[in-house]
Design a protein around this nucleic acid. Structure first.
Length: 588
RNA sequence: CGGGGUGUGGCGCAGCCUGGUAGCGCGCCUGCUUUGGGAGCAGGAUGUCGGAGGUUCAAAUCCUCUCGCCCCGACCA
């Protein structure tokens, strides 16, 4: 991927140290530990990048650490280039500061708390808003100091109830967290865009396929919050995006539009027996109709109010959207459903008829798509029966219409420019406008040009450095192992001499090439172990080194070496003197 | 936190039901052979059977408690 690096990305000196396997620590494993569930976790253990110490807590072995360092380096270069200043804040922080911000109470058991020998409260930081705000209020007293953006690359700890997926969701992890301070909101927005661009550069340079998506702005508001996702089948999050435009949002947030206007009613309403068919799928199968013609009703309690939410049979209720609209709720109990609808769950639907009918006072909220349906099938509020050919306005009152479902592939894009697709992603970055939440809570104020005291406008920006490593593997692997993008591979080139311990010719040719690669500033690993070729190949593939040069008596006799990219099907011979130029070209 | 599972050599597992003093594969060590895709043969080392208590002549095996870990869910964002 071509990129304009005015700062000079490929400074081919003093990157990581070149190495020989005989002097390094290769800890590959043929067999997979039973604990590992997902690909990246298995491969990280097998390739010898990490070892588990305790639940969600891992040692980074030398090979794995090289990858972390490369990610950090790219993040650091781009953050510096964007004008942010690196610092390091303590991992152990006084509880007092956390009480001041209110997070001492707000944070659950995820926040690891403990006491020192003086019985004073401390926490192990999951992020550092308190400490940075404390620093700002004592150091940034004047608008002349603004804007300022501090960041750190530091170990975090979150005592997850259930750590899983190895590094992907560990308790201890490395994160880049940055915090910016501004005199006004306009400047915060400027820096927010700056970070959006910076993150885009960072993930591009990391060699990952990613997408920035709109995320929940929550109660804090602001022009927004964006998550950066590495695209991977195994991702925990679903992302809705529009290939015809730049629209992208977390599925939980993506607006779900109706596919079109409501057609005219054609059928008469009929009550049909559907004994034992409590799911839309079963009803559709029994009646021989498409699932898309059925609707399902979900009963909720909001305080003392009974509310019926209606979505199409093949759609899912979006609880976040529902909560935003009606406030906090819980699912109704079986007894509450019987009380209001005189029917057991499984056969419920919006009550038919006018104001005198059973359950007429039940509040019905229909999803936009359901509101645009005609001749649909729903529960009859009578055990063992459903209704077909139901029509709004004719058979029952027009409902309140809201967006209460998850967007699905094929929905019209909310920006009106095409059709949504859904992909899965792993959240590796998040940028957020904090506004004055912390500065107000902690009394962090500066003097503006007019001499007035004002709280800082703040932004915060995170990148899960160690999670990036796991995400890169989820996105780039095959049956033989990892296929690291070159910018973060532990080594750029594997030099594999065959018969190294037997053949003087191979030994000297390998030594010469190794020296030249070193000279050229290439990050090379020479595998000089006394192992059979199969072992060497398998290990280099497993570790995921992007380029491989093989030296053998056979090729040497013709004045050649062999090149193979990790993703290539077959190797190709190269004249010896073209090895270096070829590699440099590929690494450029 | 609720449910399920599991703990036996460095790793993966069998043995447990039906108690009789621990075994297999990988890895490791030595030697010989082998050398272009995780070698073969021979020899060898490594176990408080997670911990504590109990039942029994005898416990990896049965019982009780306890700890660790894994999976599902809930929770969190």
């Amino acid at each position: 991927m071509p990129f304009d690096f005015s700062t000079g990305l490929r400074q081919r000196q003093c990157r990581c140290r070149p190495m020989k396997t005989s002097k390094f620590f290769i800890a590959t494993q043929k067999e997979v530990p039973a604990e590992a569930e997902i690909v990246s976790h298995r491969l990280m253990l097998r390739a010898g990048l990490i070892r588990r110490l305790s639940a969600g807590i891992y040692t980074w072995l030398p090979l794995g650490l090289r990858i972390v360092r490369k990610v950090e380096r790219i993040v650091r270069e781009e953050m510096n280039r964007a004008g942010a200043l690196e610092l390091i804040m303590p991992v152990v922080q006084p509880g007092e500061l956390w009480q001041e911000s209110g997070r001492w109470q707000a944070y659950g058991p995820e926040l690891l708390r403990f006491k020192d020998r003086h019985e004073r409260d401390f926490v192990m930081q999951p992020t550092s808003e308190e400490v940075i705000t404390d620093l700002a209020r004592s150091e940034l007293k004047s608008y002349r100091r603004l804007p300022t953006h501090f960041y750190q690359i530091q170990t975090k700890f979150r005592d997850e109830r259930r750590p899983r997926f190895g590094i992907m969701r560990g308790r201890e992890f490395v994160m880049k967290d940055g915090y910016s301070f501004h005199a006004d909101y306009a400047d915060l927005e400027r820096e927010y865009r700056n970070m959006y661009d910076t993150y885009t550069r960072i993930f591009t340079r990391l060699g990952l396929e990613f997408r920035a998506v709109a995320a929940d702005t929550g109660a804090i508001g602001g022009t927004g919050s964006h998550e950066f996702h590495v695209l991977a089948e195994s991702g925990e999050d679903a992302i809705a995006f529009c290939p015809q435009s730049d629209y992208a949002a977390n599925v939980e947030l993506a607006e779900a539009l109706a596919p079109g206007a409501r057609p005219a009613a054609r059928e008469a309403m009929r009550k049909v027996a559907t004994p034992g068919k409590t799911k839309c799928e079963a009803v559709a199968e029994l009646l021989g109709i498409a699932l898309q013609r059925t609707v399902k009703a979900v009963a909720l309690m909001h305080d003392r109010d009974f509310i019926l939410l209606v979505v199409r049979g093949d759609h899912d209720l979006n609880e976040i959207k529902a909560q935003k609209m009606i406030g906090s709720f819980r699912f109704a109990t079986e007894a509450e459903i019987r009380e209001h609808l005189h029917s057991p769950a499984g056969y419920i639907g919006p009550p038919m008829g006018g104001s005198g009918a059973v359950g007429a006072k039940v509040r019905v909220i229909a999803d936009r798509t359901v509101a645009a349906m005609a001749d649909f099938v729903c529960g009859a509020n009578d055990e063992g029966y459903h209704l077909t050919g139901v029509n709004w306005g004719r058979d029952l009152p027009e409902p309140q219409v809201e967006d209460i479902r998850n967007a699905v592939a094929g929905d019209p894009s909310p920006d009106g420019k095409g059709t949504l697709e859904i992909v899965r992603g792993i959240e590796v970055g998040h940028i957020f406008q904090l506004r004055t939440k912390y500065s107000e809570a902690m009394g962090a104020r500066f003097l503006d040009a007019a001499g007035a005291e004002k709280p800082f406008e703040m932004g915060c920006y995170g990148i899960g450095v160690t999670r990036v490593v796991a995400a890169a593997i989820e996105q780039n692997h095959d049956e033989r192992g990892v296929m690291f993008p070159a910018p973060i591979a532990p080594f750029e080139v594997a030099l594999v001499p065959i018969g190294y311990h037997k053949s003087e010719a191979v030994r000297s040719a390998a030594a010469k090439l190794y020296g030249q690669l070193l000279e050229a500033g290439v990050d090379v690993l020479m595998d000089d172990r006394d192992e059979r070729p199969g072992v060497l190949f398998a290990d280099m593939d497993l570790i995921g080194i992007p380029h491989r040069i093989v030296i053998s008596d056979r090729a040497l006799a013709a004045g050649k070496a062999e090149y193979k990219g990790r993703r290539d099907e077959k190797p190709a011979d190269l004249p010896l003197d073209e090895v270096i130029p070829t590699l440099l070209k590929k690494l450029a």
